[in-house]
């Protein structure tokens, strides 16, 4: 009897052992596999939630503002003086100032950035590229306040030396320096797009008797065009949102003007001015910064959509 018990017992053990030792038994803990997707999802969700939070605050406060100030006055008005009587809430002077800065910045950054990208991707020996590219990327890490003082203490005197009627604060100096600031971005992103153009396309053109310049201009740039446009639009958005340089160097005079030598105010600089001032929270004056912020948001948002459309429209598949 004990014998029999022993034998059934041991045969049961054998079966169990066999079960445990089958070829596909679980060797690793699957706990991590269960936790990780959840943890990673939470990380992603956090940033999305933050974005939603920002947009919701913006919309809420903007709505509140437009309960007190008619939307039509805001969107059609040509005078912006929300802090001084008689108050006026026309956004156009700020948009005009912002666009003036941005256009000047892009006129500086896109040609120079593109030219340096063409040099780095098509002409520069590997050694030069390996040195220049990191330096260029360091330039992108310089704090913008430093650029602001660079504008005020170096570019502005030069600009005033050339144009006698330029003010101490003027759109041109600030725009040029914003442009210098975004050159590395244009250059780096365009260069990436150009380097990604397959070697075989260049070979095909060289074999037809194209010079380096012709290959760069007629093969590489068109093939990388969507990337180049994307870099330009990103630079444009970056210039629109730039704050420190314009606060320091462009002045604080909202003005509907196309003259780059005058002092202007951008949307971002206005927001800084109000945030730092003693404007009471909850007042109409304070509400303006949300309306201005919302305008900025809508403009950048539309630009991004435009960028995607342009990039898709002109894409040359390879």
């Amino acid at each position: 009897m004990p014998n029999e018990a022993l034998s059934t017992n041991s045969s049961k053990q054998l079966v169990d052992a066999a079960k445990r030792n089958h070829a596909f038994r679980n060797e690793k803990s699957h706990l991590m596999d269960k936790i990780m997707p959840v943890a990673l999802f939470l990380c992603a969700a956090l940033s999305i939630a933050t974005t939603i939070g920002i947009v919701a605050t913006l919309i809420g406060e903007t709505y509140h503002f437009f309960e007190q100030v008619p939307f039509v006055d805001f969107i059609t008005g040509t005078k912006w003086s929300p802090l001084i009587e008689p108050k006026s809430f026309g956004i156009w002077p700020l948009i005009c100032g912002t666009l003036l800065i941005t256009v000047i910045a892009c006129l500086v950054a896109v040609p120079l950035g593109l030219a340096s990208a063409i040099y780095l991707s098509e002409y520069a020996p590997k050694k030069v590229r390996n040195i220049v590219k990191p330096i260029l990327e360091i330039l992108a890490g310089v704090p913008t306040i430093v650029y602001g003082y660079f504008a005020l203490s170096f570019i502005t005197p030069m600009v005033r030396g050339i144009f006698a009627d330029a003010g101490v604060f003027n759109a041109l100096s600030a725009g040029i320096v914003v442009g210098i600031m975004i050159i590395p971005m244009v250059c780096s992103l365009s260069e990436d797009a150009m380097t990604a153009v397959p070697r075989s396309l260049r070979d095909g053109a060289y074999a037809l008797g194209a010079t380096r310049f012709e290959v760069a201009l007629k093969i590489v740039v068109p093939a990388a065009f969507s990337g180049i446009v994307a870099s330009a639009v990103l630079a444009f958005s970056r210039a629109i949102g730039e704050t420190m340089i314009v606060t320091v160097a462009a002045g604080s005079t909202p003005k509907l003007t196309a003259n780059p030598l005058e002092s202007i105010q951008t949307m971002t600089a206005y927001i800084v001015q109000v945030s730092l001032g003693d404007t009471p929270h909850g007042s109409v004056e304070y509400g303006t910064i949300f309306a201005v912020g919302m305008t900025l948001f809508v403009i950048t948002f539309l630009l991004n959509i435009l960028a995607q459309y342009v990039a898709r429209r002109f894409r040359e598949e390879y």
Binding site: L208, G209, K218
Partner: peptide
Amino acid sequence: LRKKVGMVFQQPNPFPKSIYDNIAYG
């Protein structure tokens, strides 16, 4: 020289352009 000595490669490498523009490129 390269105009006089044409070359065709291992992988077909048409330019990302129309058929017409590929031929007209040279």
